[in-house]
Simulated scan of single mutants.
Amino acid sequence: MTKPSKEVEKIEQLLADPWAVDIQDIEEERANLRFLKATEGTPVTEFKDAKEVADWLNDPDED
């Protein structure tokens, strides 16, 4: 038998005991998604430490 995914486990946990779910994880995920949506068209150079990120992304030796 295959192991259920994290999403399936979370749904099963919610169905079994709705008050046992860690709401903080869900809220953090929602905040990350809101941030990604709000900054969708923003170039990486606009963010803090953008040069280091751009250098890392453009490094031809990096796998």
Rank of each mutant, 00 (worst) to 15 (best):
M1V: 02
K3T: 09
K3L: 10
P4W: 04
P4V: 04
S5R: 06
S5G: 10
K6C: 00
V8N: 02
E9M: 06
E9T: 04
I11D: 01
E12S: 02
Q13Y: 00
Q13P: 02
A16K: 10
D17M: 02
D22I: 00
I23A: 12
I23H: 06
D25W: 06
I26W: 11
I26S: 06
E27Y: 08
E28P: 01
E28H: 09
E29Q: 13
E29T: 09
R30Y: 13
A31Y: 06
N32Q: 14
L33Y: 07
L33I: 09
L33R: 12
R34E: 07
F35C: 01
K37S: 05
A38P: 00
A38Q: 13
A38E: 11
A38R: 15
T39Y: 14
E40H: 09
E40K: 15
G41K: 14
G41N: 15
G41S: 12
P43R: 09
V44S: 10
V44A: 14
V44Y: 11
T45H: 09
E46W: 07
F47P: 01
K48E: 14
D49E: 14
A50S: 15
A50M: 07
K51P: 00
K51A: 08
E52W: 11
E52D: 13
W56S: 05
W56L: 09
L57M: 15
N58V: 03
N58A: 15
N58K: 14
D59K: 03
D61E: 15
D63C: 07
